[in-house]
Amino acid sequence: MMGLIPLAVGDPTTPTAASSASQMGATPFIVLSAILFTIGAVGVLTRRNAIVVFMCVELMLNASNLALITFSRANGNLDGQIAAFFVMVVAAAEVVVGLAIIMTIFRTRRSASVDDASLLKY
């Protein structure tokens, strides 16, 4: 076990890393991404308004985008950035359709609560 406190592993000892931060370690970014992802997940579980739930899903997607870009920098090629780009595009398409669905449901049911769709219960 490598230790309970996350360290910036693989962090090169550059004292002037503040300017470009290109030599900064990857781990802090990954950890941040993990934290944001978790917060997004808990948000999905806890909020009842369908739109807020959707927003938490967007947060999770953004967190994974951050991880992708960090790894792109770590590996030295732009594939991660391309992936992040595609994620953004797909997220956009998803939001469009998802919000249209929420709107339609709201029109018929007059309620945007996630808990209302509970017909598949025992």
């Binding site: 579980l45 808990d115 509970s118 598949l120 219960k121």
Partner: peptide, 17 residues
């Protein structure tokens, strides 16, 4: 056992997590 299926999406999401 079937009480687990309460129909709420959020419960299922909790199980997923």
């Amino acid at each position: 056992g079937r009480m687990v299926q309460n129909g709420f999406v959020r419960s299922y999401a909790l199980t997923l997590l």
